[in-house]
Design a protein around this nucleic acid. Structure first.
Lengths: 337, 337
DNA sequence: GACACCGAGCTAATCGTTTCGCTGCATTTT
DNA sequence: AAAATGCAGCGAAACGATTAGCTCGGTGTC
């Protein structure tokens, strides 16, 4: 490994001069500059980011903790985050909490140990958990993404889940459905609770309410949604329309429908939120609200980088994005029968 | 920031002793040990990984460069890699070359600057590019994944692409098809070239050859496959069966079929390789060869960690995995007409 | 000609660890 | 009793960069 000292020796200058050349941080005469550059080139010298970081107290690393790396929604987020982070001159360290608070805790510890400059976190824990972490981690630049657990202390970027739920539900109501069911996400997350609340609000506004057995909560997982759907739909009093809380779950529901020989949209209308991209081949295309995940990720990193570079005294900012209803062919007007 | 010196002062011992306690690297009497631990706890001291790394010359970072982070196949690879890397005690830094050699080069430079301990790379460049890089990067622990470009100097983990091509093609031939076409990947990659070769070999063994217009090469992208498929299939002499080089492309083909109102499998049989997971809802399910991507990723990281820890003098190892043919409903016997 | 001033480049301290080699006490060996 | 041994713990030198503060020769002013 060639160090700055080797270069200094080879160019017959001091390390300070070499450093000045590398970083363009002070005027160096053309003569010396040339000598230094030649030496750098000859010795194939590359400055050690590690030493530099130790001195400067930065690591140029940004951490991303996602709740479920197997979920295409978050995979896409990683994609967007990598691009954004690289554009800001950082590198991306990825962690998967796999929806387990314990893993998230470990990841956060690791992130501090690596002295990452900041973290973008899709939180997994209960609110109480965060209040505590927040007290400890005070001052560590963090942006919470997607699921608000605490909007008083941290920057957050979220989607308006209530709007997502009502948009979809209003559409189903407009098609004449009243027996609308839902397979929800975990209700302690705003992504679960909010979407359900939005649905209930929309229904209440039209004076209808879902039947008890038609609202089942689950997890954001394909297999869980599959089982719940099989159970809920394999009976005569099944709903005529179903709002599924996210894209992965919708896939599980579609699979259940195929197994039960229930035709969508003829026999049942299906709509969801945050449908995963890249499944353009799926027919019928889902009617869903889409989340501008790329813009959301970019905005989150903008906030994060701003906090890293401009300091932590600014008050926390909470950015809320609006979902957009996108029509597929998975919904049909209610058949009179 | 509390440092090891603060702890040493608080516990009235030397920094060496604190270090010994932290790392369990030397015997420390129970008395001092207790004092040190108390001080660590009181001061909420966390050792700086950065300083530690500088001293030890390691970073506990493993880099992953994938060719296309938007491709679910590689997204899944990130998922597997994160888990494996964490299990080995490292953290994962993710880069996306987006199929561009230039980006790959930048990522490699960044990786060296960060002094990552090793890199798992899905190579993008031409062989010549690698021969050169290899000469420079001599000694930097690297495992090449998926697309062999150079098996003499580096560890590699790959799939038997020729086998994948023949397996699928033999299946189609067994169904009676002889007018088999293919939309291939880039032919300078073994994942593109090999699969096509496998197909051609299988056909040659039965004495058939594809018609010229029925083999079109492209890129591993959904939209490219879509356009090629639209063009190739929208004519009377279209093939009766089509082998699509990867999963993302197969989605594009299915989309083209839907637009052209060509029914699969009644009008055309479609088969592919390395189909992406997570699209269980897609109907018909694709007949395809599946790659054991998780095992492959684990093996690649095993090789990488071994090389990081055990040294670089070992000869390079090349591990080849076998694809498995998985039947869906996207292929049907040739209709006599 | 003496003075202050300027600025290119150097010296050395510093970031927070790990670790080599040493000290000095207590125990064992002769 | 003197010498040899063992070993807990310490001091200080690294690791490879950045940077504050200093030196010292050249210019401008009176």
């Amino acid at each position: 490994m060639t160090t700055i000292k080797d270069v200094a020796k080879a160019a017959a200058v001091s390390t300070a001069t070499v450093s000045a050349v590398i970083n363009d941080s002070a005027y160096v005469s053309p003569l010396l500059r040339a000598r230094v550059q030649a030496a750098i080139h000859d010795l194939k010298y590359e400055p050690s980011q590690m030493a530099r970081n130790l001195k400067k107290g930065r690591s140029e690393l940004i951490a991303l903790i996602v709740a479920d790396l197997a979920n295409p929604f978050f995979a896409r987020m990683v994609w967007a985050a990598e691009a954004a982070v690289a554009a800001w001159g950082y590198s991306l360290v990825v962690f998967n909490s796999d929806e387990k608070p314990e893993n998230e805790r470990k990841a956060l510890a690791r992130i501090r140990a690596l002295s990452c400059d900041g973290a973008l976190v899709v939180p997994v824990g209960l609110p109480a958990h965060y209040a505590q972490r927040d007290a400890e981690g005070r001052g560590f630049p963090t942006v919470l993404f997607g699921r608000v657990v605490d909007d008083r202390h941290s920057d957050t970027v979220t989607i308006d889940n209530i709007a997502a739920g009502s948009q979809v539900t209003n559409y189903l109501l407009d098609l004449g459905h009243t027996r609308i069911g839902s397979i929800t996400g975990p209700l302690h997350l705003t992504t679960g609770r909010g979407r359900l609340d939005g649905m209930l609000q929309a229904m209440a506004q039209r004076g209808v309410a879902p039947e008890p057995g038609h609202v089942r909560s689950g997890e954001f997982r394909e297999d869980v949604a599959y089982s719940v759907a099989r159970e809920m739909l394999d009976r005569p009093d099944r709903p005529t329309a179903l709002y599924v809380a996210n894209g992965v779950m919708a896939l599980g529901v579609m699979r259940a429908l195929a197994d039960l020989s229930i035709h969508c949209p003829l026999d049942i209308s299906i709509a969801s939120t945050d449908t995963i991209s890249g499944i353009g081949g799926l027919r019928p295309r889902l009617t869903r609200t889409e989340h501008p995940i790329i813009e959301m990720t970019n905005e989150a990193l903008r906030l994060l980088v701003d906090r890293i570079q401009r300091g932590k005294d600014k008050p926390p900012r909470n950015v809320v994005f609006q979902p957009a209803l996108v029509l597929g062919e998975s919904c049909a007007p209610l058949k009179r029968s």
